[in-house]
Design a protein around this nucleic acid. Sequence first.
DNA 1: CGATTATGATTAA
DNA 2: TAATCCTAATCGC
Length: 283
Amino acid sequence: MVEGHGCHRVAAAHRKKLLNLVFAASSPNGRFADGARAIDAKALLDVQVHGKNLFYFFGKARSSPLDFTDVVHIHFGMSGQFRVAAAASEPATKSTTRLRLESSCGTWVAHLSAMTVRHGGEKLYTDAIAKLGPDPLRADAQPELLFARMRKSRKSVGLALMDQSMVAGIGNIYRAEILFKAGVHPEQKCSSIAQPKAEEIWRHSVALLQRGFVTGSILTVDDADAAAMGPPWTRRYVYNHSSCGRCGSDIKSWAMANRTAYACEVCQPLLQLEAEAGAAAVS
DNA sequence: CGATTATGATTAA
DNA sequence: TAATCCTAATCGC
C-alpha cells in the first residue's frame, strides 16, 4: 500500500464507489473530531493524489468539483488504511480509526487510519502539493522539474529518489529497483548523471509505478528474466535480496539516511566523474 | 505470544 | 538521533 502506486489505487477505488455521495462523518477515536464535524453532511466531490499524499475534496452536493469547501489531506505512513465496506458488513472501528464515513444512501461505510489526517481549505492543498516533486503516475507530471533539481543537487541519486520534494511517490523498494533497472549506483551523485540517464530513470519510474498500480503489488522483473530466475526470486531484482536477480552477484546493502539501500555493484557500478578521478589522483 | 521489522515522514531534542 | 503514529508479516521462544 505504502508507495505511490498504492495511494493511486485507493483513490481510483474510492472515486468509483464514493464520488458525489453525501456522508455522515465522525471520528471514532476522537483524533479527527474537528475535521469530521466540518465535512459532515457534505458530498465527496473529488479525490486527488500526489505521490503518497491523498486529498479528498468535500462540498455542497451536486456542485462542481471546483466548488469544494473542504479538503482532507491524508498520508498513510507505513501502514495506514482507508477501507470501504458495504454498510451491512461494517467492521468494528479500531482505536486508530480517525474518520468514519457513512453514505447517506446507506450503502457504504469507510474507515480511515493513517499517520497524517488534516482538514483545511484550498490552501492546505496548494501548500502541500507545492512541496512535492512530479509524480510519475500523474498525467500532468513535469519530469523537467526533477531533472532541474537533480542538476542543482549535491545529493546522491539514492537520496534524491526518496526525497518527495524532488520526485513524489517513490519509496524504498522502488528506489532500489528503478536504479537497478537504470544501471545506476544509489551513491552516484545527481550532478554526475547525464541527462539521457536521468530521463531513463524517469521512464523506469513511470513504467514500474504503473505496473504496480495495475497489478497492486511491486513487481519489477521483466517476464523474460523471471523465466530465467525461477521462483521464489521472480518479483524483484535487488530489494531484500542477497544475490542479484540478473547476474547472481552478491547484493550490497547499507543504510542511506536510515533506510536500507540495495545494489548489485556489477550491474550498477559506481562511476567516478573524470574530474573527481583526477582530483582523487592528485590528492 | 510478545518482540521485531518494514514499503514513511514529521516533530522534538 | 529519537520518539511518534499507522498495520501486518515474520521470528524466536
